[in-house]
Nucleic acid binder design. Structure first.
Lengths: 213, 213
DNA sequence: GTGCAAATTTGCACGGAGTGCAACAATGTT
DNA sequence: AACATTGTTGCACTCCGTGCAAATTTGCAC
């Protein structure tokens, strides 16, 4: 009965602190000594936990480095996209992804360390993308809803909606990777949100005139 | 002086045979017992080599499963694409990728086993995509050439060409993944080449009218 | 604050992954 | 046949990752 007073409880707060300590130790050490120059024993020593506990939080050194996958934005933002009456399927996707990736309310400190490492180690970037599998499927379902909203006659053709939403999701992720790369290059400190808008806009510019050639 | 008689030499032929034996053993065992139910010791036993030798051929169980990255098609095919005067940058990319992926003259036997596993284990598919990093960069350079051929005024703007070629490469890979997924679903035994054409065509259909909405 | 239940941390033991090294074997060359 | 080159193997070693059970910490009710 006396719960929910102090917002989260000691246990939860301690867990988050430990998690952050591990991530911070891992990111710092790898930035220092390179991905292969760091062992889980070292990370655990810096984070003041036992090596066994490390594996209670992360499945591998890499998972501690790449961070969590994003989540879909709030339902209102999603349905605003689904029911939008102007623009193509791609318009608005950039903003949706921006909201999703900003949802990671992680420390700026961790965020920047991580960005540097993901840029330096393509394998880590690939793992991060792989970790987004579930998010990718969520996004595809949203896109499928939008496709049907745009053209109600598609309700009858599940296969077509599936195939088309998959293709659009893949392409959108391509634009997202592009935006992320430019953001990580960090020319002028442009926020990721802006890079996402730029990439999706450029996508429109490149592809818009396709049929007209 | 007496070299090059028997085409390749005993050594080379033996190496290829061993490589294939390892791949075959690995794919078969994993198809049987699942990815985590197979050890490198087992694979080595079936392939009749020592576990140590396994690592002379592959860096990990996974690398033995996912296969090699494709290579660019012959120079004529590439420059035909670069200097094409009709269609958008995307037209012809499907065919180019089809030639590249077919370049893997691997046995059909291995190819089908591998396809099944890549479909069953998304992590393996992700690793295969990650292994294509070098190929992706090659493709990007080709695309950059095409961009400049289409609009010579771009020669002056390296940054724009780089950014745009990256974006297009990402999008093209998205279409490729889409095609591969549909091919792996194997409805009607449609060849990968045809799926690639379908995906790139659908991409054009979806994106062509973007500016007109 | 005492006591009990639930969650968390830790040590330990174990098998698999991956690498350097040096001995040995097979192949290529003259 | 002799020599050089390349490939194979066993060995030792470190690190990864997991199951299990003991010890510790926290939540909660009284």
């Amino acid at each position: 009965m006396t719960m929910d007073v102090g917002r989260a409880g000691l246990r939860e707060r301690k867990r988050l602190a430990t998690r952050r300590a591990i991530e911070f130790a891992a990111l710092g050490l790898v930035a220092d000594k390179g991905l292969d120059g760091v062992t889980i024993d070292e990370i655990s020593r810096i984070a003041n936990i036992s090596p066994r506990t490390f594996f209670n939080y992360f499945a591998s050194k890499e998972s501690a480095l790449v961070g969590d996958a994003p989540e879909l934005p709030p339902a209102e933002a999603v349905s605003a996209y689904v029911n939008a009456t102007s623009g193509s399927v791609f318009d608005g996707l950039g903003a949706l992804l921006a909201n999703a990736t900003e949802g990671e309310s992680n420390d700026t400190e961790l965020l920047l360390l991580r960005r540097g490492l993901l840029k330096e180690y393509p394998q880590l970037f690939a793992m991060r993308m792989a970790a987004m599998r579930a998010f990718e499927e969520q996004l595809r379902e949203v896109i499928a809803l939008r496709l049907v909203a745009d053209d109600p006659s598609l309700v009858a053709d599940d296969d077509l909606v599936l195939s088309r939403s998959r293709l659009i999701t893949h392409v959108a992720f391509g634009a997202m990777k592009h935006a992320w790369t430019r953001w990580a290059d960090n020319e002028g400190g442009v926020p990721l949100r802006d890079r996402l808008k730029e990439s999706f806009d450029e996508l429109g510019r490149i592809l818009g005139p396709m049929g007209a050639v």
